[in-house]
Design a protein around this nucleic acid. Sequence first.
DNA 1: ATAATATGCAGGTATTTACCTGCATGTCAA
DNA 2: TTGACATGCAGGTAAATACCTGCATATTAT
Lengths: 104, 104
Amino acid sequence: MDADKVFKALGDPTRRKLLDLLYEKNGQTLGQLCEHLGMARQSATQHLDLLEEANLVSTVRRGREKLHFINPVPLHEVYERWVRKFERQRLDLLHDLKKELEGE
Amino acid sequence: MDADKVFKALGDPTRRKLLDLLYEKNGQTLGQLCEHLGMARQSATQHLDLLEEANLVSTVRRGREKLHFINPVPLHEVYERWVRKFERQRLDLLHDLKKELEGE
DNA sequence: ATAATATGCAGGTATTTACCTGCATGTCAA
DNA sequence: TTGACATGCAGGTAAATACCTGCATATTAT
């Protein structure tokens, strides 16, 4: 996984909205997705390209259409690498902070 | 939680490194953190400010020093909002994609 | 074949961002 | 008190980014 690409891809609200749209209905075309975004088709394409480079979206051509599918694997890896690690120490870290605020 | 701030904050490799450094040793000063980054102190400050605005880092002043602590709560919320949601349908989505690749 | 449709490609621009330098302020220790 | 140290603050710049317009290509339906 290219962590940087995944995080950068998730760092934009339009791209997160695209993932949300695909979550609601997987396999949509570029045109369908554009209907829900207030921007030109070409701009949406660029966002989808980034999502695809981050491997968060996979595409399949069907004739003149291009269907978009969510790939949840990178999100899982983000979870493993970033969330679970910190989650494990959540209480400990909060304890550190509390101690510090109390003047040790 | 301001999801956009959290995602934007995580979207930069330097800021992720800062969180890693704080994970290794919580409560470090600006100076200590700077030693591990190849950039000016002022640049690191800006990154830390963004992390603080995203509520991923909390700070405590001790004399002339400023101590930095990880706050894992937003990461947990990212997980709840973004990862778990997609995780639940992981197998289903992969099934959709497989079906599509096989020509339905 | 031809018109309509869906997407691809090549730029151009304004904003954001990630750095920097220079100087100011506040704190500690001798 | 004075020098050293830790951080704050105010810009300035180059690169990245998020939009756009215009035109080209490929597919479908009549």
